[in-house]
Design a binder for these strands. Sequence first.
DNA 1: TCCACTAGACCGACCGGTCTACTCTCAAGA
DNA 2: TCTTGAGAGTAGACCGGTCGGTCTAGTGGA
Lengths: 193, 193
Amino acid sequence: MTTTTRDRLLEAGLALLLRHGYHDLGIQALLKQTHTPKGSFYHSFASKEDFALQVIDRYMEEVHRGLDASLGDLSLTPLERARRFFELTREKYRQDGYLGCMLGGLGQELSGVSDTFAARIESCFGEVTRRLATCLEEAQQQGELPRDADPRALANLLLNCWEGAALRSRLSRDPAPLDRMLDFYFSAATRAS
Amino acid sequence: MTTTTRDRLLEAGLALLLRHGYHDLGIQALLKQTHTPKGSFYHSFASKEDFALQVIDRYMEEVHRGLDASLGDLSLTPLERARRFFELTREKYRQDGYLGCMLGGLGQELSGVSDTFAARIESCFGEVTRRLATCLEEAQQQGELPRDADPRALANLLLNCWEGAALRSRLSRDPAPLDRMLDFYFSAATRAS
DNA sequence: TCCACTAGACCGACCGGTCTACTCTCAAGA
DNA sequence: TCTTGAGAGTAGACCGGTCGGTCTAGTGGA
């Protein structure tokens, strides 16, 4: 099949980039693990960088599916929907062994050295905060958030703090920082802007 | 001199590891930049890993100096002291070009792949939160924080959220996330546990 | 005289990437 | 229906360069 090899590589790339990061992931290791010859890799991808960028795209598809599932759940209040998204994400982290967020990992590793990756990852964060912000706006309209709150700022805050908690969770392979952060944020945000 | 070469290498290591991370930093590049022959490097350091760990030690010396200067400033209230530490840190980030925190960077890059680095960096975070926690305890005793607050948990929260903001700041080379996070945290923490 | 330190040639391994040869699949044309 | 040829995809040997690390020789101060 046309897509099978490519898909297999991208799928393996998700797990390998999450654990190893970019520079510690060798093409050869990826190929060996997926029983793929080099020709197939460079038939599908222009370079290692191109590959990693496409893995990020695939990662973002997952993220948006998570956002669809949580923010779209109208049986919850807007604030509950936002929180649900991160609880879903935490569950995904659990399945991965609490290795945190791939965007955070690659962002830290590469943003000092590659404008391409820095811009791409920053724009991914932008996508997420934009969707969270509209959810928080709705929360504000329904009185879950104070009138003088700034939903966009709050959405950025939420995601950034989450990333910090995810790093700490990755360091200790422990979900506790994630939950603590959510508790703190949601009890704080409802009180004041 | 005995220490000069070693110091020069560690000093350069601080800047290079912050920007490039671990795997993208080549020994050769470090040596070329510092006009050091290889023999001198391996005379002072057992390996690249040993070098990086010693750079982390040096980084932590700076951090503790920052903590001394801010938490020890008795002209401020305890909560102001805690905030001051992060404002000092933000100033340091500015001088570096907003590349964020080296511990966060190396933690993300290496903790999936090296238990040594994961443990070391987690313990560095532990040192910082411990000192912050005693400061927050004092704040609590003086009534700056609610009676039912948990200073240790709040200290961890503070540092974790800061790391998230630092990542975002690194991605966009922009200090705004840092300030937003401090404003949010300190206005929230004083209100409730 | 001794030893910390400098100096850099050298090592095997591995890096990302290229190249050529080959194997299929499938559509076009007789 | 059979032949054939184009192109997608497979296969892996091979490339120059760089990696972290070793080794030996030399230097300079105590």
